[in-house]
Nucleic acid binder design. Structure first.
Lengths: 129, 129
DNA sequence: ATAACTGTTATACTTATAATATAACAGTTG
DNA sequence: CAACTGTTATATTATAAGTATAACAGTTAT
């Protein structure tokens, strides 16, 4: 799986890393039990500091996406990612809220917005970008 | 219209201000042509610095939500907010993408996600929280 | 066992952003 | 004239992001 970073983005690159790995899991490109590169090798590969990778891994671990075996290294959670709980749903709503408010102001219809969502769901089910 | 800020949030408070005003416009609580408090009085009301308010107003102005008449002060754009363009739609997709990827990983169905979206659209159409 | 790896922790530095604090300018309004 | 308006400038503090080295403890292969 290849990682694409935008160093000009406002999103911090450790967050971009987190997002890309979660995307990889979502589109089954990263399978449960599959190994991830070590912090040092991944950092070297994409030309960033190992602490930046470590910060991303730390967050992914804390959110249950990956496990760290002392033996096997970094591994996609073999039991799958923890199901959504109430905290997660609240987090989604909190992120969705300003997007939808802006859309309403700019005359984007509910139908169009939902069409966009469905399209993204398809993107992840299928193997597209 | 009352402003509710969370000073413990990770979101900067100028951004919270922007979001709340956009929400106010979305739910027609703030009408086109309606005046907003001056940077100084709003800052004093919510107990923050005038520059923080000014930063929020500046962003709202740049995105076309408000106008600044030298006479009338700060005013909700009387011509309405500019319609969504391609840049806006890309911004929405970019924000939506990680939310949907996470949702898929955590077994939130497309139906449930869309239900959440519809609920938020209703929230703004109606007068609810 | 030695060497090369693993994640993890600690410290220090630089840079950028957020927020505050004063102060001033130019225009408007009572 | 006084009180307001948005705007700009400057300075300070605090926090986050990213990098740079270094070290520790455990694992693995030679």
């Amino acid at each position: 799986m290849l990682i694409q970073l935008d160093f000009e983005s406002n999103d911090p690159i450790y967050q971009q890393l987190v997002d890309q790995i979660i995307e990889g899991i979502a589109r089954k490109e990263l399978q449960p039990g599959e190994g991830l590169p070590s912090v040092r090798s991944l950092a070297a590969d994409i030309g960033i500091n190992l602490h930046t990778v470590n910060k991303a891994y730390k967050q992914l671990k804390q959110e249950g996406y990956i496990l760290i075996h002392r033996q096997k290294g970094v591994v996609i959670n073999p039991d799958g990612v923890p199901k959504a709980d109430e905290d997660f749903r609240q987090r989604i709503e909190k992120s969705l809220r300003p997007l939808i408010a802006e859309s309403i102001c700019r005359d984007v219809s509910e139908e169009e917005f939902i069409k966009q969502c469905k399209q993204l769901f398809e993107t992840f089910k299928g193997g597209n970008t």
